[in-house]
Amino acid sequence: MTHIDFDHALDQRVAEGDEQRLKARGLRRGLDEWAALLEREGGKCLSDPKLCDRWAAAVARWVIDANLLSDAENLHVALETLRSAHARLAVAGSTARAEIVVTVLLETTRAALERARQAELEDTLDPDTWAAKMLLVIHDIPGLTSQELASKLPTTDSQVSRSGRALIERGLVIKTRHGQERCWRASARGAVAARKLQRRATARAYA
């Protein structure tokens, strides 16, 4: 990559960051709109099945958009809004349908928030840590044992164990048994994180 290419890539990332912020503001406006309808008269306005279904479809689309943007902040606000509404809605009577819909959306939003927070962990993984170095090696050479990893890095078996636990907790690597050996592989999420680390390392090299 030449300096010109890097400058172009940097300009593109800045533009993408501005676009991301604009989308986040758009998400917040959308959140305010569907939350206002949910708050109105304690959700009683959703007693009409057709209105409830249209509202649910709109919220589901909003959750998908927020998930694609990994917008943890707005997803957290949405989750708390849905939790508050769920506590108020009755499981019987005119709001019973809305209660079921909110329950489903609540769990969907919770899962999206967990994924967004995981994405934040991927983006903030320090490339200089043993965990990051270990992830890159596992991604490049899947199936290594702990002893082979210690030799490749190089570091101690205890460091591999500590860093490996941290990566497993983040859902970035998987440790599987093959015969008497335990081997390391990157999860699908770990592969994405490894590619992000590689891009960040390249960008830093040209900075």
Rank of each mutant, 00 (worst) to 15 (best):
R13Q: 10
T2Y: 01
D48H: 04
L68R: 15
T2R: 08
K133D: 11
E169T: 04
E169G: 02
R162W: 05
W62P: 12
E16D: 13
R195L: 15
D157R: 11
H76F: 09
S70Y: 06
I168S: 02
I100L: 14
V63L: 12
A96M: 10
F6K: 10
D32M: 12
K133V: 09
K196H: 12
A98Y: 02
W184S: 03
L113M: 09
R110D: 12
T129R: 01
Q12G: 14
A66M: 11
A24P: 02
G17E: 14
P142N: 07
M134T: 03
L197W: 02
A191E: 15
A72V: 09
A132M: 02
L69Y: 03
L121K: 06
F6G: 11
L125H: 04
S151W: 11
R115A: 14
H3F: 10
A194T: 02
W62K: 11
L89I: 12
D32Y: 06
D71M: 13
G164W: 00
P49S: 11
V173C: 04
L135N: 00
L106Y: 05
S161Q: 13
P154K: 05
L105D: 04
K196V: 08
C183D: 01
S146D: 10
A112F: 01
A56Y: 01
L106D: 05
H139G: 07
A60F: 09
D5M: 08
W34C: 14
L149Q: 07
S187M: 02
W34N: 09
S151E: 13
R21G: 07
L75S: 07
R28N: 08
R25L: 14
Q147W: 00
L31P: 02
R54P: 05
E33H: 14
R189P: 08
A112C: 04
D157F: 15
M1L: 08
G43S: 06
Q180L: 04
G171C: 06
G26V: 13
M134Y: 00
E114S: 13
A60C: 10
L135M: 05
L135F: 01
Q118W: 02
L37A: 10
D18Y: 13
G43V: 08
G179D: 11
L136G: 02
S161A: 15
R61Q: 13
W130K: 01
R200D: 09
A58W: 03
R170V: 03
F6D: 14
R115C: 08
E120V: 06
V104T: 09
G43W: 00
G164D: 01
A96R: 06
Q12S: 15
L37H: 09
V63R: 00
A132G: 08
L38D: 04
V101L: 10
S146Y: 01
L51T: 12
R182N: 07
L149G: 13
A90S: 15
R110S: 10
L135R: 01
L37P: 03
G30S: 14
Y206T: 07
R28M: 09
V59H: 03
